[in-house]
Nucleic acid binder design. Structure first.
Lengths: 202, 202
DNA sequence: CACTGATCTCAACGTCTGTTGAAAACGAGT
DNA sequence: ACTCGTTTTCAACAGACGTTGAGATCAGTG
């Protein structure tokens, strides 16, 4: 986390990658502590850089957050790829992909930052609602042949967010320790039900 | 939120209820903005009181949080009452009760405060994990006759937390607007499945 | 080599935070 | 009426925060 010689002033050669280092540090801090919890000073410290440089590049903390939360995967590509093979098994494919991403990205997962921030920062909540809605849920809804597709997509989102919070943030013990394939089976069936089963009461 | 005459110094008669007013204000602020977001000064302001008085009563912000988050319903009474009638329909009873409490308490729901705080405050996360575990999940697990009862309870918790976050905090549009009985039916079936269905992959 | 423009640090600002110590106002017991 | 203990406000602290403006240092261009 010290991409350049420390202490010395002035410019170091070319594109020193400092901007990218700041973004990496920001992603990690926002993911771990949310928008309010992450401080510009801590991010700058992680990147081995003066806080003022962060402002110079991004202007405000808000803008830094937006820049850092740019999703590493493009939903416009991923979602069609998952939805493509048809409704059959879509639940399992979604959950398998999600848990794969969660386990691979670990603590640096930008989705964690989004959730952590959304939960106590209304602006971030709106941001996440819009991102979830336009980038993911509407696309999934478009592929659902059953009634009330958007409600079904919201139901799926509620279970997915629940997985994220209960497993990664609250770290409920047996859930965190459970076998991946088992979780994929159980949650996949739930999502599949939300996508296709009749919605009538009881 | 101005329980006593403002501005004047010194003691007002007997037990003025100021302590309770502080706790009410704290509950509302913590529920709405989480531990970090809620400030002692704002809480004191809502209660029509000097910030120093809050410290005098509770010592630290942490202690105030703990005091404010005392659960209004005693799980030792509620859970047995829900579990009593047996496993059949337990999923629906749990969800019906939960959604009832959510809608009734609204924004002042202490569970929202717990979630909002847990998500970006590790101490609160541990607190919520322990509360969920000892007060609720273990009790539910004790009533489950299937295999791996605690994992099943964790699965239920993941969907319940998901409902809370997606519906109350993110406010996904169709989910927030959906008919109560419909949600109870859909989610009740999910919880029931987590409680009783075989857990084998796929 | 001088100029330019980007990169980067320094020092400070104003504001907000949790917290503290002292004193003021008051009810109640004697 | 005097004291005692509780309740409450006041004024200030030290630290952290986001942000700013000025200036130092360097790569590349002419």
């Amino acid at each position: 986390m010290e991409p350049t010689g420390a202490g010395r002033r002035g410019r170091r050669p070319g594109d020193s990658g400092t901007r990218a280092a700041i973004l990496d540090a920001a992603r990690a801090r926002f993911a771990g502590e949310g928008f309010r919890g992450a401080t510009v000073r801590a991010i700058a410290g992680d990147a081995g850089v003066d806080p003022a440089l962060v402002m110079h590049y991004f202007g405000t903390k808000q803008a830094l957050f937006v820049a850092a939360m740019e999703f590493p995967l493009d939903p416009a590509q991923v979602v069609p790829h998952l939805v493509g093979p048809g409704i059959d098994g879509l639940g399992e494919r979604l959950v398998r992909f999600l848990i794969g991403v969660i386990d691979e990205l670990g603590e640096a997962n930008p989705m964690l930052g989004l959730v952590r921030s959304a939960v106590s920062h209304p602006d971030a909540a709106r941001m996440m609602r819009e991102f979830l809605g336009e980038a993911i849920l509407d696309r999934v809804a478009a592929a659902i042949e059953a009634d009330r597709p958007r409600l079904r997509a919201d139901l799926c989102a509620s279970q997915i967010v629940g997985i994220l919070v209960a497993r990664q943030i609250l770290a409920l013990p047996e859930l965190a320790a459970a076998d991946r394939e088992l979780l994929i089976g159980v949650y996949g069936a739930t999502i599949q039900r939300y996508l296709t089963a009749p919605l009538g009461p009881s």
